[in-house]
């Protein structure tokens, strides 16, 4: 899995590419842990290039989401592929997370447009 981070204005963008599973999720967990320990206020995770995810991927997002809530930060997941959306649905977590159709919509939400 490729993990790339970028900053667009005041938003920290995490771009993921590949398969997010029990093997690759620790690396993502560490990256998101870095951002949340710095209390990064706006985190956008772009999942448009993730074609597979298991429950360890979900657990990684749940942990990061809970941590951002603790310091009143905001985390938006964007561009969920059908496979990834299906996993959120099995976990019944699709309404717990803030989910945007794509990166552009997530950025608009962050800027309050």
């Amino acid at each position: 899995m490729k993990i790339q981070t970028d900053h667009q204005d005041d938003i920290s963008v995490v771009m993921l590419e590949g398969e997010l599973d029990f093997h690759s999720s620790p690396e993502l967990r560490a990256k998101l842990g870095e951002l949340t320990s710095k209390q990064t206020p706006k985190i956008l995770i772009d999942l448009s290039k993730v074609d597979y995810m298991d429950s360890s991927g979900i657990a990684t997002f749940v942990e990061a989401f809970q941590r951002t809530k603790r310091y009143s930060g905001r985390l938006i997941l964007a561009g969920l592929t059908a496979a990834v959306r299906g996993v959120f649905e099995i976990a019944k977590l699709e309404n717990i997370f803030e989910i945007a159709a794509d990166r552009g919509e997530a950025q608009s939400r962050f800027s309050g447009k």
């Binding site: 657990a59 749940v62 809970q66 099995i90 976990a91 309404n95």
Partner: peptide, 18 residues
């Protein structure tokens, strides 16, 4: 109990659902 807002504990639920 779903939704589970704590990390982990979903693996067997996934297997049973599928």
């Amino acid at each position: 109990t779903l939704p589970r807002e704590k990390p982990g504990g979903l693996g067997v639920h996934f297997i049973r659902s599928i």
